[in-house]
Protein backbone atom coordinates (compact mmCIF):
# COMPACT_ATOMS: atom_id res chain seq x y z
CA UNK A 1 0.00 0.00 0.00
CA UNK A 2 1.30 3.44 -0.84
CA UNK A 3 0.91 5.45 2.32
CA UNK A 4 1.76 9.11 2.84
CA UNK A 5 5.45 8.48 3.48
CA UNK A 6 5.79 6.15 0.53
CA UNK A 7 4.03 8.71 -1.61
CA UNK A 8 6.48 11.34 -0.46
CA UNK A 9 9.28 9.12 -1.73
CA UNK A 10 7.55 8.84 -5.10
CA UNK A 11 7.10 12.62 -5.25
CA UNK A 12 10.78 13.14 -4.56
CA UNK A 13 11.77 10.49 -7.06
CA UNK A 14 9.63 11.69 -9.96
CA UNK A 15 9.09 15.43 -9.50
CA UNK A 16 11.96 16.53 -11.76
CA UNK A 17 10.89 14.27 -14.61
CA UNK A 18 7.30 15.47 -14.25
CA UNK A 19 8.55 19.07 -14.26
CA UNK A 20 10.47 18.48 -17.50
CA UNK A 21 7.40 17.04 -19.18
CA UNK A 22 5.20 19.87 -17.91
CA UNK A 23 7.73 22.42 -19.10
CA UNK A 24 7.82 20.86 -22.56
CA UNK A 25 4.06 21.12 -22.63
CA UNK A 26 3.86 24.72 -21.50
CA UNK A 27 7.26 26.38 -22.11
CA UNK A 28 6.68 28.17 -18.84
CA UNK A 29 8.53 27.61 -15.58
CA UNK A 30 5.75 28.79 -13.23
CA UNK A 31 3.09 26.92 -15.21
CA UNK A 32 5.19 23.76 -15.14
CA UNK A 33 5.56 24.06 -11.36
CA UNK A 34 1.79 24.40 -10.97
CA UNK A 35 1.27 21.35 -13.16
CA UNK A 36 3.72 19.32 -11.05
CA UNK A 37 1.59 20.10 -7.99
CA UNK A 38 -1.64 19.29 -9.78
CA UNK A 39 -0.21 16.05 -11.18
CA UNK A 40 0.83 14.67 -7.80
CA UNK A 41 -2.41 15.76 -6.18
CA UNK A 42 -4.43 13.97 -8.85
CA UNK A 43 -2.13 10.95 -8.56
CA UNK A 44 -2.74 10.76 -4.81
CA UNK A 45 -6.50 10.96 -5.30
CA UNK A 46 -6.42 8.36 -8.07
CA UNK A 47 -4.00 5.91 -6.46
CA UNK A 48 -6.76 3.34 -6.22
CA UNK A 49 -7.03 3.33 -10.00
CA UNK A 50 -3.35 2.61 -10.53
CA UNK A 51 -3.33 -0.99 -11.70
CA UNK A 52 0.42 -1.51 -11.62
CA UNK A 53 0.53 -2.62 -15.26
CA UNK A 54 2.56 0.38 -16.37
CA UNK A 55 5.54 1.70 -14.48
CA UNK A 56 4.55 4.27 -11.87
CA UNK A 57 6.47 6.95 -13.79
CA UNK A 58 4.53 6.23 -16.99
CA UNK A 59 1.26 6.44 -15.08
CA UNK A 60 2.34 9.81 -13.66
CA UNK A 61 3.28 11.10 -17.12
CA UNK A 62 -0.22 10.32 -18.33
CA UNK A 63 -1.71 12.31 -15.47
CA UNK A 64 0.75 15.11 -16.12
CA UNK A 65 -0.16 15.11 -19.83
CA UNK A 66 -3.84 15.46 -18.98
CA UNK A 67 -3.15 18.24 -16.46
CA UNK A 68 -1.06 20.00 -19.12
CA UNK A 69 -3.75 19.53 -21.73
CA UNK A 70 -6.32 21.14 -19.41
CA UNK A 71 -3.86 23.89 -18.67
CA UNK A 72 -3.08 24.56 -22.33
CA UNK A 73 -6.75 24.64 -23.22
CA UNK A 74 -7.53 27.16 -20.49
CA UNK A 75 -4.50 29.19 -21.53
CA UNK A 76 -5.69 29.24 -25.15
CA UNK A 77 -9.07 30.44 -23.95
CA UNK A 78 -7.41 33.15 -21.87
CA UNK A 79 -5.28 34.15 -24.85
CA UNK A 80 -8.33 34.55 -27.01
CA UNK A 81 -9.66 36.95 -24.42
CA UNK A 82 -6.36 38.72 -24.08
CA UNK A 83 -4.89 40.35 -27.16
CA UNK A 84 -1.56 40.84 -25.37
CA UNK A 85 -0.11 37.45 -26.07
CA UNK A 86 3.63 37.48 -25.35
CA UNK A 87 4.21 34.34 -27.41
CA UNK A 88 2.42 35.61 -30.48
CA UNK A 89 5.06 38.28 -31.06
CA UNK A 90 7.86 35.79 -30.69
CA UNK A 91 6.15 33.34 -33.01
CA UNK A 92 5.90 35.89 -35.78
CA UNK A 93 9.34 37.30 -35.29
CA UNK A 94 11.70 36.47 -38.16
CA UNK A 95 14.99 35.26 -36.75
CA UNK A 96 18.02 37.18 -38.01
CA UNK A 97 20.73 35.26 -39.98
CA UNK A 98 23.12 35.57 -37.02
CA UNK A 99 20.67 33.82 -34.78
CA UNK A 100 20.21 30.99 -37.23
CA UNK A 101 23.20 28.91 -36.27
CA UNK A 102 22.22 25.52 -34.92
CA UNK A 103 20.68 24.42 -31.66
CA UNK A 104 20.37 27.80 -30.00
CA UNK A 105 18.41 28.93 -33.01
CA UNK A 106 16.40 25.76 -33.08
CA UNK A 107 15.39 26.42 -29.48
CA UNK A 108 14.50 30.00 -30.26
CA UNK A 109 12.24 28.89 -33.08
CA UNK A 110 10.98 25.69 -31.54
CA UNK A 111 9.41 27.20 -28.45
CA UNK A 112 7.14 29.62 -30.31
CA UNK A 113 6.42 26.89 -32.87
CA UNK A 114 5.28 24.58 -30.08
CA UNK A 115 3.19 27.38 -28.66
CA UNK A 116 1.53 27.64 -32.05
CA UNK A 117 0.24 24.05 -31.88
CA UNK A 118 -3.19 23.23 -30.56
CA UNK A 119 -3.31 21.78 -27.05
CA UNK A 120 -3.98 18.28 -28.40
CA UNK A 121 -1.27 18.50 -31.07
CA UNK A 122 1.30 19.64 -28.56
CA UNK A 123 0.40 17.05 -25.95
CA UNK A 124 0.40 14.19 -28.45
CA UNK A 125 3.68 15.36 -30.00
CA UNK A 126 5.47 15.81 -26.66
CA UNK A 127 4.33 12.40 -25.44
CA UNK A 128 5.47 10.75 -28.68
CA UNK A 129 8.66 12.70 -29.29
CA UNK A 130 10.06 13.36 -25.82
CA UNK A 131 8.44 10.67 -23.68
CA UNK A 132 8.63 7.95 -26.32
CA UNK A 133 5.07 6.73 -25.77
CA UNK A 134 3.62 4.70 -28.67
CA UNK A 135 0.58 6.23 -30.36
CA UNK A 136 -1.72 3.55 -28.93
CA UNK A 137 -0.67 4.53 -25.38
CA UNK A 138 -1.10 8.21 -26.15
CA UNK A 139 -4.64 7.67 -27.38
CA UNK A 140 -5.47 5.73 -24.22
CA UNK A 141 -3.84 8.32 -21.97
CA UNK A 142 -5.74 11.18 -23.57
CA UNK A 143 -8.98 9.28 -24.05
CA UNK A 144 -9.12 9.77 -27.81
CA UNK A 145 -9.27 7.45 -30.81
CA UNK A 146 -5.99 6.08 -32.13
CA UNK A 147 -6.46 7.96 -35.40
CA UNK A 148 -7.09 11.24 -33.59
CA UNK A 149 -3.81 10.89 -31.68
CA UNK A 150 -1.99 9.89 -34.86
CA UNK A 151 -3.30 12.85 -36.85
CA UNK A 152 -2.52 15.26 -34.01
CA UNK A 153 1.10 14.09 -34.24
CA UNK A 154 1.11 14.38 -38.04
CA UNK A 155 -0.22 17.94 -37.88
CA UNK A 156 2.26 18.86 -35.15
CA UNK A 157 5.18 17.51 -37.18
CA UNK A 158 3.95 19.33 -40.26
CA UNK A 159 3.73 22.66 -38.42
CA UNK A 160 7.06 22.22 -36.69
CA UNK A 161 8.80 21.35 -39.95
CA UNK A 162 7.38 24.45 -41.54
CA UNK A 163 8.62 26.59 -38.66
CA UNK A 164 12.04 24.94 -38.46
CA UNK A 165 12.72 24.61 -42.18
CA UNK A 166 14.59 27.94 -42.43
CA UNK A 167 16.91 26.85 -39.63
CA UNK A 168 17.53 23.46 -41.21
CA UNK A 169 18.32 24.82 -44.64
CA UNK A 170 20.23 27.79 -43.25
CA UNK A 171 18.03 30.32 -45.00
Amino acid sequence: MIDREAFRGLVEQHSRAVFRLAYRMTSSHPDAEDIVQETFLRAWKQLKTYDGRAAFGTWLYRICANCSLDHLRSRKRAEMDDSEDPFRDIAHESPSPERLAMSVEINAVLMPALNGLTAMERTAFVLRHYQGLPIADISRALGVENNAAKHSIFRAVQKLRKALEPVRTGQ
Binding site: R8, V11, E12, S15, R16, F19, R20, Y23, R24, H29, A32, E33, V36, Q37, F40, L41, S103, I106, N107, L110, M111, H129, Y130, V157, L160, R161, L164, E165, V167, R168
Partner: peptide
Protein backbone atom coordinates in the same frame (compact mmCIF):
# COMPACT_ATOMS: atom_id res chain seq x y z
CA UNK B 1 17.09 16.06 -39.25
CA UNK B 2 14.32 18.39 -38.09
CA UNK B 3 12.88 15.99 -35.54
CA UNK B 4 16.35 15.14 -34.19
CA UNK B 5 17.05 18.82 -33.81
CA UNK B 6 13.92 19.12 -31.65
CA UNK B 7 15.53 16.67 -29.24
CA UNK B 8 18.23 19.25 -28.51
CA UNK B 9 15.66 21.34 -26.71
CA UNK B 10 16.13 20.67 -23.03
CA UNK B 11 13.93 22.22 -20.38
CA UNK B 12 15.65 24.24 -17.65
CA UNK B 13 16.50 22.38 -14.47
CA UNK B 14 14.45 23.47 -11.48
CA UNK B 15 16.22 24.67 -8.33
CA UNK B 16 18.31 22.28 -6.23
CA UNK B 17 15.74 21.65 -3.50
CA UNK B 18 12.88 21.37 -5.97
CA UNK B 19 11.77 17.95 -4.70
CA UNK B 20 11.49 19.21 -1.15
CA UNK B 21 9.62 22.33 -2.12
CA UNK B 22 7.16 20.27 -4.18
CA UNK B 23 6.47 18.09 -1.17
CA UNK B 24 6.26 21.07 1.21
CA UNK B 25 3.44 22.54 -0.88
CA UNK B 26 1.79 19.21 -1.45
Amino acid sequence: ETLNACLDWTPPEPELDFERSVWAQL
